[in-house]
Write a protein that binds this DNA or RNA. Sequence first.
RNA 1: GGCGAUGUAGCUCAGCUGGUUAGAGCAUGCGGCUCAUAUCCGCAGAGUCCGGGGUUCAAGUCCCUGCAUCGCCA
Length: 639
Amino acid sequence: MSEVFYITTPIYYVNARPHLGHAYTTIAADVAARFARMQGKDTYFLTGTDEHGDKIVKAAAKEDKSPRTYVDAISAEFRKLWPELSITHDQFIRTTDPEHIRVVQYLLQKIYDAGDIYFSEYEGLYCYGCERFYTEKELVDGKCPDHLTEPEKIQEANYFFRMGRYQEWLVDYIHKNQDFIRPERYRNEILAFLREPLEDLCISRPVSRLQWGIPLPFDDRFVTYVWFDALTNYVSALGYPEGDKFTTYWPAAQHIVAKDIIKPHGIYWPTMLKAAGIPVYTHLNVHGYWNIAETKMSKSLGNVVDPLAMKNTYGSDTFRYFLMREMVFGLDASFSEEALVTRINADLANDIGNLFSRVIAMTHKYYGGKVPAPHGTKTASMDFGLKAGALQATETFEEQMPLMAFHKALMAVWAFIGQLNKYIDATAPWELQKNGQQAELDTVMYNLLEGLRIVTGLISPVMPETSVKMQQHLGLEDSQPVRLETLKQWGCLPSGHTLPKAIRLFPRIETKTDADTTPPPPPAPRGLKDAKPAIGIEDVGRMDLRVGHIIRAEAIKKSEKLLKLQVSLGEEIRQVVAGIAQDYSPESLIGLQVTLVANLKPAKLMGVRSEGMILAANGENGLCLASFDRPVQAGSIVK
RNA sequence: GGCGAUGUAGCUCAGCUGGUUAGAGCAUGCGGCUCAUAUCCGCAGAGUCCGGGGUUCAAGUCCCUGCAUCGCCA
């Protein structure tokens, strides 16, 4: 095994704010990086933002900003988000970084000098609305499918990268390196694509059409376009061509990407590297999409899951665990808060949280919190396959993690957690205590704590915060990063030291069952006391509020609070029952202007029909009717 | 239209090169324990392994075909 590990996420295009997909990719890369560190590898983890291109210019214009101001703002959002999700990247690169720009130009020049970039003039159908060319086939009735206008035939010249030249080499390379692109389905997709002749890649845009880009070093009338700029980040970040980091880490490079960008990463990038004389990366790891399930809980979220909101509601570790456990790397998965809550309660609260809690609690009960010493061979019968189970879990974990099979790795850990819970049942420490079987009890309790030590280590790449918390409660030195090697050895937990009291690692989340069909309220927008859930303008619009003039008022017999009012809305007169008798006498109301909810369903109060509702403030000195500071025509709309 | 993938318990999915009564988690029902976050442990029910052919002593697993869903390409 190599001693070095270099992992990257794609650099995220800043025409949109961070969403679930970004979070997943980045967390997956972080988990891989943390695992590599756990293996003792010299690890480098890169992420960043992609900031050039016409979409950015447009998005910036929409917000009335310069591209620079705009990309600074969105890029900052990504940069601020990652620490919230416990992301431990070593570098955050931006394609607007001067060092990156220099490397892109260096690389372009190098490939240009080698003769793999050429200039070519061509004629095409151009839609000015879309600012792009269309092929005949893409058009609908000869018109742009977006703008429904006929594109114009224009001539343009651009620079092209001779990608086709490397097609054979690439096919051959993919055949020789079975796991170059993985999982296999995406490898097959790339190979299928490569069965057709590979066209050369247009890598420029004339400055007349786009200024927000990196100028070609050999022709300043052009800037480089999208992929050439973006992909280069993986080497520019390392200081290619001569940086130490490049020399050290590049040979161990791995990329993680979502399936929508496999072509640039699986085809453009390897051929670019080949043309530049750079060895290709070792693995392209491709994952699927998160489908957002429309459920009761998530309706209010719309179709975008905000990673930060998830973290704030459920916690970073929990969110990370869910994403890693729920998705089979490579396949699509569906996201719903219901599924998330199910995982939290079942896997985290019940399985691991409760296990941790009960073991620590027993340690306090039986030993005053002091870790007992095991009794070795004398109590060997108390093993119940626990040591073997621990090793099995660790080995499976070690096997699956480098394959990005996070769900399988976690399943192995949970199998061991299940075994620990069974172990408690089988050994029944409370019985041992009652029967005075001290040696057995010592061994059992030590084994449980030791088992927890291993669990703590195994979950650390996925749930770093929880892992640290557990380590502290097991009396382990948290300053020491967890090493995989120590998880394969049984008996590393020292005896004799005193543990802190147990804590709830993962509180259960109470779910409302059946009866509750209304979605739980989204958080109130402000910190008001008794704040109600947020509503949209359409909800406000549903209320028909009117100015009413009170023309008659009388008390309702046997009621202390209610008054019967006749309220004029101009065209009609409404009878309204109002609960204001304690603060207003009937006489005092005549002629007052009030606010009336005019479309409230009629109801009977104390046997009296009421066709609306008068609004009033509930102040310290009783009720105060919502009135108007000037005369307003009865029936006027209030909004 | 071409290529490919998938279709297994109510839900989400494991089932490698074909071989005993088809598995796990969640959900459901019952039982047990009491150390623990009303948690944990055990048991149970439930599946024509998409339909139809075929190869084989033996097929969820291989072949053909149909249907459905999805992806890539055009």
